[in-house]
Nucleic acid binder design. Structure first.
Lengths: 251, 251
DNA sequence: CAGTGGTCTAGACCACCGC
DNA sequence: CGGTGGTCTAGACCACTGA
């Protein structure tokens, strides 16, 4: 052999037979290595050409993996210089994730307390958002959301009957349930406002009447653009803290 | 000539000498055509191979333009079938944009009323967020934000002196001013909470004490990961409505 | 000036869709 | 079965960075 394999950092072996594309395999392997702290912050990655040669893949493919991580903010590209591990910043919780997933990731124990669920005729705003078929009913889920036993939010979710034919089957996570039938939203638009809790809401959240509460309206969309979910959340702001990451459109 | 140029929809001519890359030129041209409604919703675009041949560019380049628009939600790709114009949904105002830009896009006239500006020694949270050089002061901007003459928010922005050496030079838009020196944030993390207005805030915003107000803390980052801006916004929620778009991480 | 990332090309194979 | 998007390759040129 000409020289020892000196791949110092990546135990990654491309597997062309695997189900997932090469660039995803590589992106995942790199992300894992970064998350595990196997690179120093601000350290330069092996150059794209080196990476490609060591892994016996084309540079285009290596680049595509890196591009992905740049988008995710794990890597910063510096033209003419190199690709660098991005300095750590707060975990971007931006990605669309459900209440349960989110809290779980932060180490809390999520819990739901059902207030009501069933079907009903869609209200005006639900008609507009969800565009159900004529005469179709909507499933309605009302829940209190707890973290480590503390009430954090009151949520009302509304979905077309065709999307959620059996509301009683939903356990902890609505998104997990929807994923079973391949109907979990991949994108959501959220409108966020602040409101004063009225008597009913205050009682549900166990706070004083008039307390400022985050009021979030979310419409969830499938990849093909259909709206599948309209959710109103009322969040106790003393515990809950909505985090959004935004990027500037380079155009 | 073999057959008439039947490029039916795109008046786009690739210009290899232009400053911007081909795929961006194409993405922009396509986006414009879509925005102008020159394609029907759910209509299929010309196939990638056709597009490439008609425009005399490689398929990879055409793909890259389309990929961009898919990310932006303008196009939906269906494997084995075609690329389709995405059904319209609300304009994603998600992209990082300044207060002035945002309102301007929505047709309002933005306006600022200065409350105070100058330098001072950074407070503890400002130290943590901005990591200024030892002993460096920070510029502090306090403004009331108006839209069509109505007070919408009270904002306090803090930036390292090295980033904003002359606070008095900022006119309407802080981001526009920062862009002049190439220091406008490309990414920001925002924490959003709801609070009850205290006496001072109520007076500034001209609302009743105790009214629920959106309290947004934003840290703006440059491409290289340095934090350049810490802004606290207090927004009247009866007028202001924060919109966030989220995507599910496919991984 | 050597090395880097950014762009672009021509050509290939695959899995999938719809006729 | 032909056409489509999804992936991958090898090779090329450019503008930029940094010593």
């Amino acid at each position: 052999m000409t020289d020892a394999k000196k791949s110092p950092l990546l135990s990654f072996q491309p597997d062309p037979t695997a189900a997932s594309p090469l660039y995803l395999q590589l992106a995942l392997a790199l992300a894992k290595a970064i998350q595990e702290g196997r690179f120093q912050a601000n350290e330069a990655l092996p150059s794209e050409r080196v990476l490609a040669e060591e892994l016996a893949i084309s540079r285009v493919t290596a680049r595509k993996a890196i591009e992905r991580l740049v988008e995710q903010g794990l890597i910063v590209s510096k033209r003419g210089s190199g690709n660098y591990i991005a300095p750590r910043l707060e975990q971007p919780l931006t990605r669309l994730s459900s209440f349960s997933e989110e809290l779980h990731q932060r180490g809390f124990v999520p819990q739901s307390r059902w207030v009501a669920r069933g079907f009903r005729v869609p209200a005006a705003d639900e008609q507009i958002a969800l565009e159900p078929k004529a005469g179709e009913r909507v499933a309605r889920l009302e829940r209190l959301r707890l973290a480590d036993g503390v009430i954090m939010a009151y949520e009302v979710s509304v979905l077309p009957e065709s999307v959620l034919p059996d509301p009683e089957a939903v356990s902890a996570s609505l998104y997990a349930h929807l994923a079973l039938s391949g109907q979990a939203p991949v994108r959501a638009l959220q409108h966020i406002r602040a409101i004063n809790a009225d008597a009913k809401l205050a009682a549900l959240l166990e706070i004083a009447v008039g307390t400022a509460v985050l009021f979030i309206t979310r419409v969830g969309y499938l990849a093909d653009g259909r709206a599948v979910e309209l959710t109103h959340s009322y969040c106790r702001s003393d515990y809950y803290d909505f985090v959004a990451e935004m990027r500037r459109d380079p155009a």
